[in-house]
Design a protein around this nucleic acid. Structure first.
Length: 289
DNA sequence: CACTCGTGGTA
DNA sequence: TTACCAAGAGT
């Protein structure tokens, strides 16, 4: 028995309103689910879709990717952003081959040991790919629970133990994965950050935030992350040069895309430290081999 | 814990 | 146009 009064209406809503996404289809195995979850970190579905298809067509199993140079993963990643995730997927593939016989582990703790797999992704894979009972606490779920249960427009900046406890308390004994994906989908399609479509919400009558008159967010101002002129933009440009080149490039090709030399060298050193760029003996640079 | 780490779409 | 936002993780 569950004490979650939201489960039935939200799961019913999901049954008729869910998007047809490839990683939710029956033929999507654990590797496909894991690839999708890494790609979806901080990245919209629409931009993930084409890369996801290319990726799995080329590397249908972890072993297929593990055989490749890491640079191939970085190149395939394209402009998805946060390219360390491409490196993480390559390292994950190698770890899965070396430590788990080529199979993505189903255990939450074992998943957490993989690079780039944190609390959310471990729960998502254990739940969606293996049917495990875990709270998937992503930005969508946090926002839905903040409004529906806590009566606040937005959740705290960082996930709190109270949020974790709340999510755990709502986790159904049966079919927890469907509850999790249904709440996520509700947050993605209806209970959105900007202008929630409460008229289409299956639990609007129970929503604490709506019933309270939708009070405005009163927490500390959430800093907007600037991009222009930052090291991140510089890194992005440098790596784009290497992605777009067939092979190694001379240093001059990197110098050409960023004027400020101190920042440029710092960004390049950071890329090398991350393993995203290989400095060559001849002074050139390449994607990692 | 606050900060870093890409990129592009939207209001 | 600026600002916010998008299935987070690592330090």
């Amino acid at each position: 028995m569950t004490t979650n009064p939201y489960a039935a209406p939200i799961v019913d809503w999901y049954a008729t309103h869910q998007r047809d996404l490839p990683w939710r289809r029956p033929d999507a195995g654990p590797w496909a689910v894991l690839v999708s979850e890494i790609m979806l970190q901080q990245t919209p579905v629409a931009r993930v879709l084409p890369v996801y298809h290319e990726w799995l067509a080329r590397w249908p199993s972890p072993a297929d990717l593990a055989k490749e140079p890491a640079g191939e993963a970085v190149r395939m990643w394209g402009r998805l952003g946060y390219p360390r995730r491409a490196l993480n997927l390559h390292r994950i593939a190698q770890a899965v081959v070396e430590r788990h016989g080529g199979r993505v582990p189903d255990d939450h703790g074992r998943l957490l040991e993989l690079p780039g797999v944190g609390s959310y992704t471990a729960a998502a894979v254990a739940s969606f790919a293996f049917g495990g009972r875990h709270s998937v606490l992503d930005t969508n779920v946090r926002r839905v629970l903040a409004r529906l249960v806590s009566g606040e427009e937005f959740p705290p900046k960082a996930t709190t133990s109270a949020e974790r406890r709340l999510a755990d308390s709502l986790l159904p004994d049966e079919d927890a994965p469907t509850w999790g994906v249904a709440v996520m989908e509700l947050g993605a399609l209806v209970c959105t950050a900007r202008s929630p479509r409460c008229a289409d919400c299956p639990v609007a009558e129970r929503c604490a935030w709506r019933l309270a008159g939708k009070p405005g967010y009163d927490g500390p101002p959430r800093r907007g992350q600037r991009y222009a002129g930052t090291d991140r933009q510089c890194r992005g440009r440098l790596l784009a040069v290497l992605r777009n080149a067939d092979g190694p490039v001379p240093k001059a090709a990197l110098d050409a895309v960023w004027d400020e030399p101190v920042q440029r060298e710092r960004a390049l050193d950071a890329l090398i430290a991350d393993g995203l760029v290989d400095p060559l003996d001849d002074g050139g640079y390449a994607l990692p081999g």
